[in-house]
């Protein structure tokens, strides 16, 4: 069977990553739109001793799983995965290669794209066929706008897909698994996996907090954080931060909320001077009640907040601190 949509089945610590099922869900929908058969949806799974995972993918959405095995792809490296995946894509000649927009999916997709003579479309939030032509939607300017892209004649289309862009494939399939040896070419690999390790940790644990007051770049300077701290203390909560705040050393890394920080779900989350980039939102959207204070009415944070104030945090936050203290009889 020819291959129209090829997806990269990522796995980690012996588990197929959720993004794989979403990519399969997306591929099935796109096949419907483009008039492809479900038999033309294939997956690639790279690994060593991971046959059982390939079987699982064949049962949950892929008509065929190309399971490329080898010590060169036992762990992810751009070099190993890139070479093995590029060889498979060249042999399969799909219309599209879909990878998750994960740290490794985002690393490997452009490597393979360049090998195939195309650019990648990264971090896509939607893919659809309109009038028989693929259209990809992705954010630009860190979420201030989205763009809709026509890939023109570039084939295969290589894209990385954001988490949640499509519902996971929910059906069952009886796909085949074709085991091959991961082809990483002559001359050996120039990248060597060493280990996965934990990043810095500290004494603050935001995951347990029931109230978090977070400050972003809009706070402006480290010496202005007392305004955030005062509200957090009045509410008996913890201080959170967006990435720039911890990058610039205004607060230690353990305060960072988001995809590369902690995921939190307090009863109350107050975002002050935070624009609401997707990487921040994924870390706090599970909060019970979200308040956003931002001077920019267009800031995406207002899209996830329950209640918002458009204004200067240095006016609103102290007023709220005062009101909270008064309510608690501490004024």
């Amino acid at each position: 069977m020819a291959c129209k949509a090829l997806i990269l089945a990522e796995h980690e610590e012996g588990v197929v990553r959720e993004t794989t099922w979403e990519l399969l869900g997306l591929a099935h929908r796109l096949a419907g739109e483009a008039g492809w058969s479900a038999g033309e949806i294939k997956a690639v799974l790279l690994g060593q001793g991971a046959r059982a995972l390939a079987d699982e993918v064949a049962g949950r959405g892929a008509a065929e799983v190309i399971y490329a095995e080898g010590t060169a792809v036992e762990h992810y490296t751009g070099d190993g995965y890139g070479k093995a995946l590029e060889a498979i894509v060249k042999a399969e000649q799909p219309e599209m290669l879909l990878c998750g927009h994960t740290p490794n999916g985002w690393d490997v997709a452009p490597l393979v794209a360049a090998g195939l003579g195309v650019s990648a479309l990264t971090d896509c939030s939607a893919v659809a066929f309109e009038g028989g032509r693929p259209r990809l939607t992705r954010k630009i300017f860190n979420g201030k706008f989205i763009q809709v892209v026509d890939p023109g004649g570039a084939r295969p289309l290589v894209a990385t897909i954001q988490r949640g862009a499509a519902p996971a494939f929910a059906g069952r399939t009886q796909g085949a698994v074709r085991q091959v040896t991961a082809a990483v070419g002559e001359g050996g690999l120039r990248a060597r996996f060493v280990e996965i390790k934990k990043g810095e940790t500290g004494s603050v644990d935001l995951t347990q907090a029931s109230v978090i007051v977070s400050g972003g770049r809009g706070v402006g300077a480290p010496d202005k954080f007392p305004v955030i701290r005062a509200l957090a203390e009045a509410l008996g909560g913890q201080i959170g931060a967006s990435r720039p705040v911890t990058d610039m050393g205004w607060l230690p890394h353990e305060h960072q909320v988001g995809s590369s920080g902690v995921t939190v779900s307090p009863k109350l989350y107050i975002a002050c001077g935070i624009s609401g980039a997707i990487q921040h939102i994924v870390g706090m959207r599970g909060s019970g009640y979200i308040v956003a204070i931002n001077k920019d009415a267009e800031a995406p944070i207002f899209g996830v907040a329950d209640v918002g104030v458009i204004g200067d945090l240095f006016e609103i936050v102290p007023a709220l601190t005062k009101a909270v203290k008064a309510a608690k009889g501490q004024a």
Binding site: I146, Q147, A154, G303, V307, G308, P318
Partner: peptide
């Protein structure tokens, strides 16, 4: 080959209730 057909503000999500008035 790639062409941007259009750009637009991001989808608003459920959208917050916006409070107005003095601080």
């Amino acid at each position: 080959r790639l062409r941007t057909l259009r750009i637009a503000p991001p989808p608003k999500g459920k959208g917050a209730e916006i409070l107005k008035g003095s601080p």
